[in-house]
Design a binder for these strands. Sequence first.
DNA 1: AACGCGGGGGG
DNA 2: CCCCCAGCGTT
Length: 345
Amino acid sequence: MEGLEKPGYVVWGEKLLEWYRANQRDLLWRERKDPYRVWISEVILQQTQVRQGAPYFERFVQRFPTVESLATASAEEVLLYWKGLGYYSRALNLHRAAQKILAEFGGNFPTEYQQILSLPGVGPYTASAISSIAFSQPVAAVDTNLYRVLARFFLCSVDISTSGAYRIFSELALKLMPKEWPGEFNQAMMDVGASVCKPLAPLCHECPLREGCLAFSRGTMEEYPVKQRKTKVSTISMQYYFVNDGLSYIIQQRSEKSIWKRLYEFPTEIEQKYQDRLLAPEILQHRLSHRVLNIRIDALVLSTWELEQWSKKEESIVVPYTESAGYSYPRPLERYLEKWLGSRS
DNA sequence: AACGCGGGGGG
DNA sequence: CCCCCAGCGTT
């Protein structure tokens, strides 16, 4: 990595801030420096793009405006506001963290970095983001944007998926940061990374850091940052039965262990005697990051009496069509339901 | 250090 | 079909 003279660091940070003051995105959670709102927004935006997360933030803080309102809600309802966003343990951790804040910090959002880091679902990045934005602590929020911007500018070839990279980049960022503006600096880094220094086809012509950027001068922007290759994609098959009587259907809750934590799904098996009453199956394909799910859904229409017998089985829940929205479903099942219920009216 | 964990969008 | 994204927790 090429060095930068001491005075150069100061100029770097100030150039970035100057650009940020003129070009920052106006986002809902930037209106106030309320640690609660910063926290919620940061968790929503973990591995999630602003466009996708913004509507969720608005709904979430409207329903749960304070730590206490979140802590005293049911996990079930919190999940309902997370439905469709993915990475569902984030919602469950948010809920647990709110209860921890209530129990251990008297309902006041903790102000110390180490305390913030101790909250479930809050890692080094999120703790730094909250500390810097809400409490003006001089710590670097090391996310993929920061890796990309700095790796390109300084032509740094360290593999960002290794643990050593975190320390190198956070120390470098701290040198570049004007210490009076830690929150602004971190958010400026995110905005430059998101809207200018993009992973592919970066807009170098409008970059405030173009001058001095080593990757730009060599035309090798897209080769940075260096990241280890990902694992291969695997395929998994799933079988569901949509058991209904024309008015209600059967669901069960998934465990907290694997994919789709605590969301609701259709039964995965039926008794032998129903095998010859299945309707034509629906085949859905659902792509995840490193997996492809082939989902087969067989519809089974029972009489009201038969459905009632079924519902006596352990863990099964009968849902009237009209109350379908009261439960959180994985995306593919939600789409199946919409189609089924919609076709009836 | 490597992996599981979602979903939407872009080329 | 691949890639990407305001990461974290577990093993």
